Simulated scan of single mutants.
Amino acid sequence: MLYGIAAASAALLLAACLAALLRVPALRCGVVDRRRRTRPVPLLGGVAVALATGLVAGLGELTGVARMGSEPGALLLAGSAVALLGLAVDLWRLRTRFLLAGTAVAAAWVVPYEVTGAVGGAGAVLWIVLGTVAFRSLDHADGLAAAVGVVTALGVGVCAAAEVMDGLAVLLSVLAAALAGFLMQGRRPARIALGACGSLFGGFLLAGAAVLVRAGHEPAGSAGVLFACAAVAVADLVLVVAARRLAGRALLRGGPDHLAHRLRRLGLAPRGVRAVLVGGAGAGVLVGVLVHLGSLGASAVLWVAGGALIVVLVLLRLTSSPAPRMASAQVRGQLRVRNG
Score class of each variant (00 low, 15 high):
Ala11Thr: 04
Leu27Cys: 07
Val32Lys: 04
Arg36His: 14
Arg37Gln: 14
Val41Trp: 08
Gly45His: 05
Ala50Leu: 06
Ala52His: 09
Gly54Val: 04
Leu55Asn: 08
Gly58Asp: 01
Leu62Pro: 01
Gly64His: 03
Val65Glu: 06
Ala66Gly: 03
Arg67Glu: 11
Leu75Lys: 03
Ala81Cys: 15
Ala81Asn: 02
Ala81Tyr: 03
Leu84Val: 15
Leu85Trp: 03
Leu91His: 00
Trp92Gly: 00
Ala104Asn: 10
Val105His: 08
Val110Thr: 14
Glu114Pro: 02
Glu114Ala: 11
Gly121Val: 08
Gly123Ser: 11
Ala124Lys: 00
Leu126Thr: 10
Thr132Arg: 11
Val133Leu: 14
Ser137Phe: 15
Asp142Lys: 06
Gly143Ala: 13
Ala147Pro: 05
Thr152Pro: 03
Val156Cys: 11
Gly167Arg: 06
Gly167Ser: 06
Leu168Phe: 07
Val170Ala: 12
Val174Lys: 13
Ala176Glu: 09
Ala177Pro: 10
Ala177Asp: 10
Gly181Val: 02
Gln185Pro: 03
Gly186Pro: 08
Arg191Asp: 13
Ile192Ala: 00
Ala196Phe: 11
Gly198Gln: 07
Gly198Thr: 04
Phe201Val: 10
Leu205Met: 12
Gly208Glu: 01
Ala209Trp: 07
Ala209Gly: 06
Leu212Asp: 08
Ala215Lys: 02
Pro219His: 00
Pro219Ala: 06
Ala220Pro: 01
Gly221Trp: 02
Gly221Tyr: 01
Phe227Thr: 00
Cys229Thr: 07
Ala231Phe: 09
Val234Arg: 01
Ala247Asn: 00
Leu252Phe: 13
Asp257Gly: 10
His258Glu: 12
His258Tyr: 12
Leu259Phe: 09
Arg262Pro: 05
Arg271Asn: 13
Arg271Leu: 11
Val273Asp: 13
Leu277Lys: 03
Gly279Glu: 07
Gly280Phe: 04
Gly282Pro: 01
Leu286His: 07
Gly288Phe: 09
Ala298Phe: 07
Val301Glu: 08
Leu302Ala: 15
Gly307Asp: 11
Ala308Ser: 15
Val312Asn: 10
Leu315Ser: 10
Leu315Thr: 04
Leu318Pro: 01
Pro322Cys: 13
Met326Gly: 06
Ala327Leu: 15
Ser328Lys: 01
Ala329Arg: 09
Arg332Lys: 12
Gln334Met: 14
Val337His: 11
